[in-house]
Structures are given as C-alpha cells and as structure tokens.
Design a protein around this nucleic acid. Structure first.
Lengths: 384, 384
DNA sequence: TGATTTTGTTCTGGTCAAGAACAAAATAGG
DNA sequence: CCTATTTTGTTCTTGACCAGAACAAAATCA
C-alpha cells in the first residue's frame, strides 16, 4: 500500500539533499509542467522550467527511456528556425480512477493527462460490501485493461470514498452511507489487483480535480464545497496542495457550526452547515418557496464568509446542489457572504460554481496515482 | 521591503533546480536543525541531516565563515572516541522583534535562537501615529543596539500588528484598534532604519512562536486561537508553515460565524466567535456567573469543533483570555468541543492552553527575519 | 603506554547542470 | 534554387556539489 501523497515526513523538509534528488526533482518538474498542458515544445519547457536547453535535452531523453513521455515532430511550424519537438505525457501509461458510492461504483481508465479513456459502472442495488465490490472492481479493471492494447502500463489505482479515510495506509475509518467501519480498503484492493492503491475522500478529490483540470485551474488557494446525497463535504487547496491535516481527515467543511439550531446533520451534529441546508433532493428540483431559497442562500453565504476569513482563498467553488443553489441566486448568496468577510480577504475573491460534472471525483481519484508517479518518476516507473 | 516569507512563487515549486540551490538548501537545513535545538554536535547534525560527515564539515566551515554559526569544544565527553564539536547559532547575529499595540509598543533584541536579549517598552498614552511610532522604534533600536557590543550584526526587523497585513509588501491594510488604514509600514520603517522589515498579524505570529518555541513545538498541524483586547485572532500551521492564503490575510479565526445571534463583533459582524465571547476584560476577572462561563465554554467548544473538522490538527492552542477560560473549565470546553468533532479527527487531538506569556508575539515577530535568514543564508548574510 | 573508538579533514570520484561549440532544420530573400 | 538567418537539438567541457575512502586527531579503556 502506498500513501496517497508523496511521502514527505515531518523532518524531510529540513533534510540534506544530494544530486540524485536534484535529478528526481527536475524530472518531476518537467512532468508537472506537461501534466498542466496538453503538450509543450521543448523550447517552452526550457523557458518554463528555467533549466538549460542542454539539461532539458538530457532529461527528456531519460523520461522517454522511462516511457513516461513521448515526443513528436510538430504538425505546423509557424516560426522561423528549426522546429521544436512537441512533448506530451505518454499514452502508454494510464491509471484507474474509482468512485465508490452507495448505489453504484464507477471504474474509469484515465490517461496521465487526466482524460477518461474508458469507463464502466457497477450498479449496486444493495449497499456494496467491501469484499464483493472489490471483486467487481477487479473484474472491471481487467476488462477495461484488456480492451486496450497490450502495451498499456498501469501506474496505480485511485479510489474515492464518501467518508473519512486515513491516507497513510488507505484505511476507511468510517463511511456512513456505505455502512463501512474500519475497512482496510487500500490493502484489500492491492492484494486483489497487485497494483498500488491510493485512497481519498470524495469531496477532497473533487477539490483536487477542480484545481488540476476544472474551474480552479491556475489558482493555488482554493476552498471547495460539495453538496451531494451523502451530505456536504469539502476540500481545501493550500499552496497548490490539498489540505490534509494530521492524518488526512481535514476538509470536513460540512460540519462547521453555523447556527444555534437544533437540527442535526447526518453525523448527528446540530447547527452545522450540513444540518442547515437541505439535502441532495434539491439538486434536481428547486426548493419549495422563495423564502426557503433565501434561507439557504443566507446560510450558504455565512459559511462562505467563514471560509473566506479563515483561508483567504482566491476562489471558493461550489459543487453539487450547492452549485445549483448558487446558480439560481448568485447575487443573493454573494451579498450574504460579503456581509461578513473582512475587507482585505474579500478583495479579489471569486465565488464560482464548480466546473466539472460527475466526472470530477473520478478524475480527482485518478490524480492520486498520477501525482505519485510524477513526484517520483524514476522509482515509480521502475516497478510499472 | 522583503516579503515575510521566503519568496516561493506559485510556479517555483515546479521549477528546475541546479547545484547552487542544493548548497543553499543544505545550509538552510543545518541552520533549521540548529534553530530547533539550543546546540547540536556535528555528529548529531550528520545523523539528523542524513548528509555525509565530510559534507557537514564543508558546510559548517562555510556557515562559520558567514558568521552564522559558532563551534566550541564540548564541556564534557561522556563517550569514547574523539569528542564532537558543539555547534550553535551565532550570538553575533540578532534581529529585532516589535509588537505594536494601542497603548504601548515593545521593541526587543532577539537572538537567532529566539532568546530575548534586551527589550524596551514605548508607552503610547494616545493612539500611536505611524510616523511618530516609527521614529520612536528607530530610537529604541539604536539604543538597544549600541548597548550591545560593536560586533553585533542585525539581520532585520519583524513587526507584529493587530490588523490585516499584506505580507507581500508589508502594507497594513486595516488595523482598527490603531485606527490605521493603508499604512505602508514596512517600507516606512525600512526607510527609517535601513534594515529589512517584515510584517505580520499579531495572532498569526503568536501561532508561529508557539510552533517554534512554545506548546506546539514538534507539531506540524496546529490551530491557534488568541483572545486579546483587540478581539479574537488566530493562526494556523499547515505542514509546519503558517497558513497565509492568497495575500497573507488567512487565519482570521475570530470571524467565523457560529450562531444566529445579532450580537456584533469589533468588525460589525453578527454571530461570530468574537461577537459571542466576552472581550478581553474577562482575562483578569472571571465571568460574572457560572452560567455565563458555561455559555462561553459552549461557544468556544463549538468553534473548536469546527476547526477540528476543518483542519484535522494535532493541537488546538488557546491563548489570551481564551486560555484563561480553558484553564478555568478545561473539561467543560473539551466536552462541548467533542460533541461535534467527527470520530477520526477527534483522535489524538490535543486541546491545550498556549504556553508562552506576553513575549510570544515578540518572538513570533522576530521569527520573520530569522526565517528569512535561515532560508537564504548566503544571500542574506552577504548584506548584513 | 598502547589498543580502540569516534570524529574531523583531505583527497578522489561520480553525478549533475550550465554553457560553449557545433550540427540540424526550418524560413526569408534574392 | 541557393544562401543567409534564425531557432533548436546535441555533444563536449567545465565547475559545483556530495559521497566515500583514507588518514589524522582526540578521547576512553585496559
């Protein structure tokens, strides 16, 4: 079982660094740049990375040898001079993204660039038991894989779970809507498939997907709020990385206390954001009355103001039925929010609806093994 | 004007790295290790850094040449073998820490290890105007400096301000209790003193001081709540570093919405933590009734539960009058908090009173130029 | 006093990135 | 169609860095 984040222990930030780590860092830098764009020419890589042309040449040779990058000749050459090679992440390496929900589980084959190549939905009329859903995921994976060419290599599996996940070992601590308690899902799925498995909370992975591919692309301080059938979750991007906290449980934004109300949320807590806002039903149908909508907007605005003051983000993203509410009454929500945001953090703050649809969580899950590969290309690629 | 954090632009995390940066990184690693302990032997540095003995030797020679580290022979030699040199941060380099409040301003000379060498309090019966307080700070600095030996070199000035501070250029956006609006304090003090100046919010700097020297030492995920005469502020340590947000305004934890109450805080926001809890008066005297105390504990507990669910910290620290409330009724606050913290983030969570007294903010302020020096030893030391 | 242990120093070797020199591949202009 | 120009890829050299080996120094222990 791998951790879902590059293993940076507390002390390693202060550790010494040698030349090997420089190379690994620079390889990761190139892969990161390539993952942010569909493709880049070598000369663009020289400019973006700040590395010398000769160094880029060596690094690209190594990445091609590792099979992580492919280079082609440019289709068009609008400039003078020798045309630069066009590099992109290899399409011969891919990952699986899995999203486990109560009534279905989606399994997708995802390219290193975050494109969904193929997908399969496992319907679960009954709540999925860990053992049975793992067997079904295993079958889906092997079917999806064999449908592609033999040359396809798989870097790992990322799984989104609606619950609290310990990222260090991929243990599902509690997933109320699946009725899972203390399920060592990552190690079970690793044992079944033989591939490295990375686990994350579904809403947090939605945040990482919005950051990598969606409405929050290009921003490094992001608050993401997601309202789904399993309540309200969230994810926060700090300095370009997901806020994890001590053990990976950070981002439970639905359980902030907002009011004195005795109304309870799915966890039995009263007065929280999740307790106050209507459940996922409202995603399809608008709330009964204008009054009810205004009340929702007021509470959503209060939560937004809290998060703006706490995090001073560039963007606050609303997904799921929260995005629907926002789309219906953008100005009302915004004005309620601005009532209680301090002047400075309110500047340049964007409140937006999340961009991606239902595929966002899958893409976020797939991002876990992709990030692991990018951060440690030599080590990871060796065991592919 | 320098930024109060090492300049890491958004993209530089992915930038290429060359050998020069390796040396700078390793020098910074040694300085960081030394700043965390009073002194370390060379052999301890070898073990902690993971660098080779010969490399440590070269690095220590360079740091001594830069005047940042001094080595002495050990006082006692309990072990067999040749005794290892004892290294510590040089006492010939120091910084100034400044804490501006409405009725006084403290100016302290602080060693690189965070020890207060000398201090001076400027009383301000009237609210301090920026120009006049800067002149007084300048005088205090030159007096404190000349009272020490001529060999003392100053690495910079760190200033704590009770308000919203833009860290990029050290602009005080709004400090209500000082009645300062848009004061370019850092550049003004730089012009007056000729030293690099770093600015920060007072409560945030309290958090960094608790992390570096106080109750949160050794933890890398910390939430710090501070209740003072100027309201309730806070600071959050994420992955060992202060949470700054887009422009450095993050950590305004006193302005989270907690209730439906119409009671307003100092910023005119209703229902916030700061609005709900009594002001600094209660720091000296206990609240009027047991009922009032319980109400405070309930609200403080609600805030703690929100922050635990949001950040999944290892420690939540309470300072100022919030620490007093906690000391009076630790179990009540804790039980109210635990009512609404999810099971996973509640594990291993410590709720503690902040350790340091009134010196914490000064030490946090001094930490700004110290960190800048440590992070870029070659560049910074050259201009001392 | 001599053997042992531990640590500091010096020298050598390997890896890395930068830069210079050169080769390759396109356009622009006659 | 050919040549000059521009831009880019490749190769070679150079300098910086860290690791490891060999050696020297400084303590303890018998």
């Amino acid at each position: 079982m791998k951790t879902s984040a590059p293993k940076i222990s507390v002390t390693s930030q202060t550790l010494g660094r040698n030349n090997d780590q420089v190379r690994e860092h620079n390889l990761a830098a190139i892969l990161t740049l390539l993952s942010q764009s569909k493709s880049l020419t070598r000369s663009e890589l020289v400019e973006l990375s700040g590395l010398n042309r000769s160094t880029i040449s060596v690094l690209m040779t190594e990445l091609q040898a590792l099979g992580l990058v492919s280079e082609t000749s440019p289709d068009e050459t609008p400039n003078k001079g020798r045309p630069s090679f066009v590099a992109s992440l290899s399409s011969e390496v891919a990952v699986f993204g899995v999203n486990v929900e109560s009534s279905f589980t989606d399994v997708c084959l995802v390219s290193l660039r975050g494109e969904i190549i193929a997908s399969h939905r496992i319907a679960t009329p009954e709540l999925p038991a860990p053992e049975s859903i793992i067997a079904q995921i295993k079958d889906a994976i092997s079917n999806l894989k064999s449908a592609q060419g033999d040359t396809l290599r798989i870097a790992g599996i990322g799984v989104a779970v609606p619950g609290q996940v310990r990222v260090a070992d991929g243990q599902v601590r509690l997933a109320p809507h699946l009725q899972w308690v203390e399920v060592p899902f990552a190690s079970m799925l690793e044992a079944a498939t033989g591939m490295p498995v990375f686990l994350g909370n579904n809403a947090s992975l939605g945040a990482t997907a919005e950051h990598a591919f969606g409405a929050a692309k290009g921003y490094d301080e992001v608050v993401y709020l997601y309202g789904g059938t399993s309540g309200i979750g969230g994810g926060v991007i700090v300095r370009g990385e997901l806020l994890r906290g001590a053990a990976g449980y950070a981002g439970e934004l639905g359980h902030v206390v907002l009011s004195d109300s005795s109304r309870e949320d799915y966890s039995g807590f009263h007065g929280t954001l999740e307790a106050a806002l209507d459940r996922g039903d409202s995603e399809s149908s608008p709330p009964a009355s204008a009054e009810a909508l205004e009340n929702q907007c007021r509470l959503l605005g209060a939560a937004i103001s809290s998060f703006a003051n706490i995090f001073n983000p560039q963007v606050i993203l609303l997904g799921g039925f929260l995005g629907s509410i926002f789309a219906q009454a953008e100005e009302v929500v915004t004005s309620f929010a601005l009532e209680r945001i301090l002047g400075a953090p309110a500047e340049n703050l964007k409140i937006m609806r999340a961009e991606l649809g239902s595929t966002q969580i899958i893409k976020g899950a797939a991002g876990l093994p992709i990030s692991a590969l990018i951060q440690a290309p030599k080590a990871s690629s060796a065991v592919l």
